[in-house]
Design a protein around this nucleic acid. Sequence first.
DNA 1: CGATTTTTCCGCCATG
DNA 2: CCCATGGCGGAAAAAT
Length: 329
Amino acid sequence: VVAFATQGVSSFELGMVSQVFTDRSCPELPAFAGAFCSDEARVLHTDLGLLMRVEHGLEAMGSADLILLLSTDIESLTVRRPVIDALIRAHRRGAIIAACGTGSFLLAQAGLLDGRRATTDRRLVARLAQAFPKVTVDAEALYVDEGRIVTCAGMAAGLDMCLHLVRREHGTAAFTAVAQDVMVAPRCQSGRVRHLPTAWDIDTTGSAELDDVRLSDLSQWVCSRLQQPLSVNDLARRAMMSPRTFARRFQSATGTTPHVWLQALRLDRAEELLETTSLPIGEISRLVGFGSGGVLRDHFVRRHGMNPRHYRNTFAHYRQASSSGRLPR
DNA sequence: CGATTTTTCCGCCATG
DNA sequence: CCCATGGCGGAAAAAT
């Protein structure tokens, strides 16, 4: 993992990437070899004015599996040709490139965002869209995953993106463990905001606060009884709303429907069990509340493009530590 | 995989 | 008048 930094680099992101992508010397977790690189002076000042010595130049990108482009102040962002070339080469080679905040501008300049969706720092989304019309700018997303090109909004969204990458490449068990290691309460699903809202992410008009009270503990309540078949009506009853109102308020608060959210939760748990136990797939289906293995399989193919057995094999190497069939947590 | 049954979702609308 | 609520019916999706 190579992180590319320029003058004025965000010290927050420096800390973030070095915490997530570190060698934990723990057999159950993926171990990352990380390095910082830059194309300019080997001594950079961060956004806080601290001095930082960078040991590698652009050549470090040549062998990286994952390249992270760190944020800087947009005014001091200068795009140099060698950087663009290095990014294009890395992309052709098959590397994953993930940009935080202003890093999206580098990707855009390199033409790597053309025809793709992307996001950037909230204050810069309009600017990105205007400067690069071929880019579809998503102003809402925490991060946007376009396969080998990933972009994210500023600040803490970078953490979500990094954890998402861990999950995508190494599975849910690794994701959960790393999230615990950096003391982030893992969200139930990747992508958009999948956790149920707390007061600050609902718009504060109307009676949103009352909703918050009624919706806030729903997530936990559901997680603790996932193995039972829960209908949307059950959720509504628990949230003390009529089914119609529940559906409507859930939709406006989370952007998704109760059923979709519930299935995502089930699927999350199923992934975890597939990776960390050797329970039969039918058994896992039952445990996470899918009636039969067929249903689980269906959802799996939709999310991952592969069936549960294939998925399990892909991430099998993280299993040896706890293969007793014991339930995690 | 296709047919059948069940569940979910959304627009519409009356009500308070 | 504004707006949240919740019942209803049918389309769509999911489960069997």
